[in-house]
Design a protein around this nucleic acid. Structure first.
Length: 421
DNA sequence: TCTGGGGTCCTAGGACCC
DNA sequence: TCTGGGGTCCTAGGACCC
């Protein structure tokens, strides 16, 4: 039996922790550059603002003056997420965090009534201690637990925020009421294709012969089908020990045409990627850099490209990563185009204990590791990017627009205090 | 005027080998 | 001119997720 805990309207709920005046209002949190809606309060959902809605299109759904729009503050959300997860870990074993706002776990207690009581208390405790509303769904598979969680969230008054989807008859009824596009693992494309075959609900889908699902689509979709039947297929790869790729990319605040300005961004992305590799005790075997124009600007010629280079020796050293990223960048840069986005990705990641030193590699790895540790320490103590590679000094041209940051003085003080606790 | 960032898995097809 | 069968590895791209 799987449990799924999911924070309700997470980013909006975080903002509300620090400013209760946001309660009861239409609130949305915007992505980098204040581009799209990435979180909505129930009030905003009720107004019909869809997930991913570009900020400038909010007016197509409701009066934008009634909508409080906030720039995302991911450090704050991460902090509150950690608090929620810590409380959960006190009560359940095998907590598998799936994203910043949700986690799976295995039922802690055989007896359903006892479990329900413990879980309902947990929901209350998280609300009291962290201020974040959460819902919990239980079912025999993760895909069904997702559905159970939605019900827990939707019918909060009836469910106490905890819902069990266990009895086969109950599962059958719920599947008949679940639209095919609402099933976890079935996105826009697959839903459209299934619908064209007359499959409109999860119950229709479950009745398809599994062999047909596999031959028409894929093993992935067949697993989703089996999960809906109540068989655990280990979807969501719960034991993700380490990342297989690490990417840093940003959309620039404006279109850039200057090579140095884009190179500056690349170096910053490389620094961040290398830092994350070190935080995870990992090294990358390859580095990929990509650049892209602005595909919304039909008036400009569009160009996009990427280049992946293999390192002689897997590394997490900032200078090595940055050098490689720049080398790849030089391979793909073309004058005369406008650039709107770029990124640096680390691939072929392995744990740094398994590192194969290349005997021809002139770098002294011990020396570099000590240098990197020192830089990380200083940046931890004095703030991000206190020490950075030289090209990063130019930072600014590519920086994102964030004009809706919540900076009420009380909130800011509280926020700072919380983060450094 | 203004459209995010960071991941995972699977599959098809090409290169290459015997 | 005719030109097998089976396997592995790698990569690009598509689909999905939050």
């Amino acid at each position: 039996m799987y449990g799924l805990v999911d924070c309700n309207n997470f980013f909006v709920s975080c903002e509300r922790v620090f400013d209760p005046r946001l309660n009861g209002k239409m609130v949305v949190v915007l992505s980098n550059n204040d581009g799209c809606v990435i979180a909505r309060s129930n009030e905003a959902k009720a107004a019909g603002i869809p997930m991913g809605c570009p900020a400038f299109k909010i007016k197509e759904h409701t009066d934008p003056r009634q909508v409080i729009q906030l720039s995302a503050r991911h450090i704050l959300y991460r902090d509150l997420s950690d608090r929620v997860m810590n409380i959960l870990m006190q009560e359940v074993e095998n907590l598998q965090q799936y994203s910043v706002d949700e986690a799976f776990f295995v039922l802690p207690h055989e007896d359903v009534e006892t479990s329900h009581r413990i879980m309902a208390e947990l929901v209350t405790r998280i609300r009291q201690y962290v201020g974040i509303p959460v819902s919990i769904g239980f079912a025999p598979s993760r895909t069904l637990a997702k559905i159970a969680n939605h019900i827990a969230k939707r019918d909060r008054r009836i469910t106490d925020g905890v819902y069990w989807l266990v009895r086969p008859e109950a599962i059958d009824i719920i599947l008949r009421r679940t639209a095919i596009e609402d099933v976890w693992g079935i996105g826009r494309r697959l839903a459209a294709s299934l619908k064209s075959r007359g499959i409109k609900t999860a119950a229709d889908f479950v009745r398809m012969p599994p062999s047909l699902v596999r031959s028409l689509y894929s093993v992935t979709l067949e697993r989703t089908q089996r999960e809906l039947m109540g068989h655990d297929c280990q979807i969501a790869n719960p034991v993700t020990i380490a990342h297989k790729t690490i990417m840093t990319s940003r959309t620039f605040g404006k279109v850039l045409t200057d090579r140095d300005a884009v190179a500056d961004a690349i170096v910053s992305f490389a620094e961040r990627t290398a830092r994350q590799l070190r935080d995870e005790n990992s090294v990358a075997g390859s580095i990929m850099t990509y650049v892209r124009g602005d595909y919304f600007r039909k008036d400009l010629p569009f160009y996009s490209n990427s280049c992946q280079l293999r390192l002689d020796t897997p590394s997490s050293d900032t200078m090595t990563i940055a050098r490689m990223a720049l080398k790849a960048f030089n391979n793909i840069w073309k004058d005369g185009f406008g650039y709107r986005k770029a990124g640096v990705m680390a691939l072929d990641i392995q744990h740094n204990s398994g590192i194969q030193l290349n005997v021809f590699d002139p770098d002294d790895h011990g020396k570099f590791r000590r240098l990197m540790t020192s830089i990380d320490d200083i940046n931890n103590k004095y703030g991000k990017r206190s020490i950075k590679l030289a090209p990063g000094v130019l930072r600014g041209e590519w920086a994102a627009n964030q004009s809706h940051l919540h900076t009420g003085s009380k909130t800011l003080l509280f926020f700072t205090g919380m983060v450094h606790l």
